[in-house]
Each structure stands twice: as C-alpha cells, then as structure tokens.
Nucleic acid binder design. Structure first.
Length: 431
DNA sequence: TCTGGGGTCCTAGGACCC
DNA sequence: TCTGGGGTCCTAGGACCC
C-alpha cells in the first residue's frame, strides 16, 4: 500500500436530526420527514424522501407548506436535548477506534479521525465499513465515511459517499486511482468543497473555475491573491498537502452569543427589555458553567431583514467592563440599560440578543488594586446560590427581573416537539 | 402571517505613535 | 509654501461552517 504523510477520515451521520427521531419512532422510516429550526422557521434536516420532493436545506417552512400537505411530510420541531445525547454516544463509540489524540469532534454529527498511524497495517476501506456497521448496530444511526490525505479531502470524500449509492457509505480517495478521482471531480461543483461558500463559488466561476477539478488545478498563489490565505489553504489541502491539524483539544472560547427571534413582533420597550434580560441570563449561565469571565458585552436589536416595506433596522451597542466579571446582576443591568439606546419607536423588532466577548478563565484572573474582594466574594456567593436553585428546581423558579413572566407573546414557538427519550419523565411508551 | 442560532477566522481601514 | 513612513492595535464587516 502506498505511504502517505497523513490520512484522515470524516464520519458523518446521514440526515442527523431525522435519523435520531427515527431511532425512537420507526414509523417515520421510509417516509418524508423534516426537522425545523427554532421557532419552527426553516427546514434544517430532511430525510432522503423529503429531499427527493425538492425540499431544500434551510428553506422557510411557510414556503413548503403546500408540498408538506400534498405529500404528507412529517414535520418535527428540533429536539436538541435528544440529538445531543445521541451525539455523545456516537462520539464515544468512535473513541474505541482511535486514541483521544486522533479524534476531533467537529460538530454534533461529524467527527474527524486521524488514521495515519493505521494506514500501513489495515485496509482503510474495510476498516471504515466496520466502523459504519457498529454505528448502525449499536445506535441505529446511518452514517458515511470519507477518507483523504487532508481534512478537506476527507470532507469531499464524505460528500461523494453520500451522493453516490454505489460507494455503500465509504469513499476512500487515498486508494482510488487518479482517473476515477478526476472523473468524480469533474462532476462536482467547486462550491461543494469545504470552505467555499456561495459568494466565493460565484467569484470562482467568474474566473472560469466551475468544478472541483478546475479548482484543484488552480494555482494556490493566484487563489491567495484573489481571495485570502484561507482559500489558498483549501486548495493545497485538495492537492494532498495537509495544512489543517486535527484539533483534539477544544480551543479557548472567543465569545458567547444568546439571541433569538421572537414568535411575534415586538414594538414595546418593556417587551424588548424582558427578552434581553432573559438572553443575558442564558449567556451568563453558560459563561459561569464554563468558568469564564467576560470583559465586554455587546447588545443588539433588529427588525426583520425580509420585510420589503421597511428599511432593515439593526443597532449594536458595546460596553467594556472596568473589570471582567461573571456577575449576572452587573451584566443584566448593563444589557437592559443598553436596550434604551437600541430601542426606537416605529420599529417592529424581530430579534435581539447579547454577545459576551473578551473572555478569560476565572481561575487565572488577577484582580486590580481597587477591587473590593469582600464585595466580590459576596456576589459570588449570591450567584452560586442562584445557580444551585436553578439546577435543583429548574430555571423558571427563580430568575432576575421581568424575564420569566409566563405566557409572553414573543416566546419561541416549537409546535411539533418530540419527546426527550432520555429524560425519566418522557421515556418511550410501548402500547 | 410565516425566513434559526451559535460559532470562527480574515481583511481593510482608521487611529495613534514615534 | 512645504505635510513621511512604518508599525501596532482596534473595530466593523464579510466570509465561512454546522
């Protein structure tokens, strides 16, 4: 077998959210099924049957209502608690095949494996098939595996495996003959390559680069000039030069965002404050659970960008804290005050949110000379109590300000939510 | 009527400094 | 009248990802 510097595999669950739902509700098998985004806004996962009906990724639900009714497409709200638990088990299963240093959890349904160390001793294609077999037998999830000399190539191989039934779930570009690869590359749009989005695909086309074949023959230097180092890297990766390391340790987080579209439009200042107050609590609770402090808070509020009758309203304010904090009382006050500036009359708001940035680990933070440590400890105690109460009784029992009033008109809608089969209260019932 | 949410990285351009 | 150049830092905006 040929020797290569690096060999990567990308394991990716097919139609992840739909497949998770089907594990617990087999009556959905062989039927068109879609899962909607928050607010039941867009279709974010489609079964093969739904794709065959022409339902595109991320299409707004209201635009496909006709197709849904006509073909009796099963519609579900997204059940992230369920998918997260399935994902955890999936990643744990894959961990049996490699060392921790050779596994990168890339997203909820994707995982890179560094197989470089095994390539000389095993048949990569057979190995990939045995991984898929176990994923299906143990979890009931269908998946595909792409194998390549770089992460980008593995991604592309995975795409090929998904699109062509005859690969049976595994596409190994490392051991494929160059003629076959060329044939495949000529039939795939450059825009399918990992890192090439819509805008870049359009610009590439204007340069005469349409297929993956065109792209893989283009000069990396030219691509760097026309685009950026990112595009240059992508092109080198497709030529078999691995530029992107496997990232097995999670990187330090840069920001925490909490934002949501409203179920109904908001025009009142007080409603906007309520929503903002709720999102700050969400963001700060994540901040605290990761034991971080935030040095800067950004708030934003916007109208719908899709309303042709009014100009798009989008305001941002930022506040740099004199000292980094994880104190909800402080951050919440800043954010709600900010709303006074973000608000404008005659604007119908569709969305608002908060971004915490300039994050740093709490345990390495050194206080400056003016900080009253006594105050600091007292507020820490208060926050810890709040965390404990919320953990024990749920987040709706005790919260700050006006953020948890029941039956708010702007609350997110999720009308087709399935059970969380991993929760004691919601176990699957067999009738 | 109805169009998600949470992330990362890169670049250009302005401010500022010497 | 004449008005440099190079470096750094910050921010906004744009592109991408799932």
């Amino acid at each position: 077998m040929q020797h290569h510097n690096k060999i990567f595999a990308l394991v990716d669950i097919n139609n992840c959210y739909v497949s998770c739902e089907r594990v617990f509700n087999p009556s959905l098998n062989n039927k068109p099924v879609i899962v909607l985004s928050n607010n039941d806004g867009c279709a974010v996962a489609r079964s093969q049957e739904a794709k065959d009906l022409g339902i595109k990724m991320a299409v707004p639900f209201f635009q496909i209502k006709d197709i849904v009714e006509k073909h009796q497409v099963h519609v579900l709200s997204s059940n992230y608690a369920l998918y997260a638990e399935m994902s955890r088990r999936f990643m744990q299963l894959l961990a049996d095949f490699v060392t921790p240093q050779e596994q990168e959890v890339y997203s909820i349904d994707e995982c890179f494996l560094d197989l470089s160390a095994y390539a000389e001793h095993i048949n990569l294609t057979d190995h990939a098939h045995s991984i898929l077999k176990r994923v299906f037998r143990w979890l009931g999830l269908p998946a595909c595996i792409g194998v390549g000399r770089s992460k980008t190539e593995a991604k592309l191989a995975n795409h090929i495996a998904k699109k062509n039934k005859y690969f049976n779930g595994v596409c190994n570009l490392v051991d494929m003959d160059p003629c076959s690869i060329e044939g495949l590359y000529q039939t795939i749009d450059a825009g399918e390559v990992w890192g090439i989005g819509r805008k870049h695909a359009k610009k590439l086309a204007s340069l005469g680069i349409h297929s993956v074949m065109d792209f893989s023959m283009a000069s990396p230097e030219m691509l760097r000039k026309q685009f950026s180092v990112v595009m240059q890297r992508t092109s080198m990766e497709l030529q078999g030069i691995s530029c992107m390391q496997l990232e097995n340790a999670p990187k330090a987080r840069q920001q925490i965002i909490a934002s949501r579209s409203f179920g109904h439009r908001i025009t009142e200042l007080e409603d906007l404050k309520e929503a903002m107050s709720l999102y700050v609590q969400d963001a700060v609770s994540r901040l605290r659970s990761e034991k971080l402090l935030c040095g800067c808070l950004l708030g934003f509020a916007q109208s719908s960008p899709f309303d042709p009758s009014k100009p798009f309203y989008n305001q941002t304010r930022s506040y740099t804290l004199p000292e980094p904090t994880d104190n909800l009382l402080i951050l919440s006050k800043i954010a709600t005050n900010m709303v006074n500036e973000l608000y404008a009359q005659d604007v119908t708001f569709k969305k608002c949110g908060v971004i915490l940035t300039c994050l740093e680990p709490k345990h390495t933070h050194t206080h400056d000379i003016f900080t009253d440590l006594h105050d600091c400890n007292a507020s820490d105690d208060l926050m810890n109590s709040l965390d404990k109460i919320q953990h024990k009784f749920g987040k709706t029992k005790l919260a700050l300000g006006a953020s948890m009033l029941p039956n708010r008109t702007w609350k997110m809608s999720r009308s087709q939510l399935s059970q969380n089969y991993f929760s004691w209260n919601e176990l699957l019932k067999i009738e």
